[in-house]
């Protein structure tokens, strides 16, 4: 072993001896571990708190999901408003509203079934009422006029809900037969070829 290596070895020995005389005092070690243990307890508290928070969120989510399942869809109600007009004896405005009323819009299926019921009815004159009128399609509503007797306006939103316009083309003016149920609710509108001859007033 040459001299530099011996010197280095000696230096290393002296360093190790010196190091062995300077060990971390036990009280410092204990103090650090004590603080760490305190933090560990706090961590468990934090974990428990987080777990509670997570469980609460999960519960709220499940509850929200369940409520969503049982909450009914937004309800629309069939509204018939009457007004007066100098030209017509009666004016009816058929539309929808979200305010609860007597007549609830049940959608196409219900209107179809009512129409089927109308077709099958033996006493249709009593239960349902069919009239023929001139349909005029406009941008925001349709109008059906029956001579000077009746003007019936139908809101586009109602048409959308009832989907009555499937059989009707895009013709602006055409003769149609429209059928109302006993409550006056429209159940069908269908095109007809024959025009109505209005009596001379």
């Amino acid at each position: 072993m040459n001299r530099p290596e011996q010197t280095e070895q000696k230096l290393q020995q002296q360093y190790q001896h010196d190091k062995a005389c300077h060990v971390l005092p036990a009280h410092v070690r204990r103090a650090v571990l004590k603080q760490a243990a305190g933090r560990q307890r706090k961590n468990w508290h934090g974990l428990w708190r987080n777990t509670q928070l997570a469980l609460s969120c999960a519960f709220m989510l499940v509850l929200g999901y369940l409520l969503l399942q049982v909450t009914p869809e937004a309800q629309w109600y069939y509204q018939i408003a009457l007004s007066e007009d100098a030209q017509y004896r009666q004016v009816q405005h058929h539309g929808v509203t979200d305010q609860p009323g007597v007549l609830r819009v049940n959608g196409k299926d219900s209107a179809s079934s009512a129409y089927q019921q109308y077709l099958a009815s033996e006493q249709r004159d009593k239960a349902f009422y069919a009239q023929t009128g001139l349909l005029q399609q406009q941008a925001d509503q349709w109008q059906i006029s029956v001579c000077n007797e009746l003007l019936l306006t139908i809101d586009k939103q109602l048409l959308h809900h009832l989907q009555l316009s499937a059989d009707l083309g895009a013709v602006e003016r055409q003769w149609v037969e429209f059928i109302s149920d006993p409550a006056g609710q429209l159940v069908a509108i269908r095109p007809v070829s024959d025009a109505v001859q209005c009596p001379q007033s």
């Binding site: 010196d18 190091k19 300077h22 060990v23 971390l24 005092p25 410092v28 070690r29 650090v32 571990l33 760490a36 243990a37 933090r39 560990q40 961590n43």
Partner: peptide, 20 residues
Amino acid sequence: SANTAYLEKLIALYGDALYH
């Protein structure tokens, strides 16, 4: 894990050297 056993091992490894 915040398990103090690991900290204790770390201190055992380097605590004396750092203190020296």
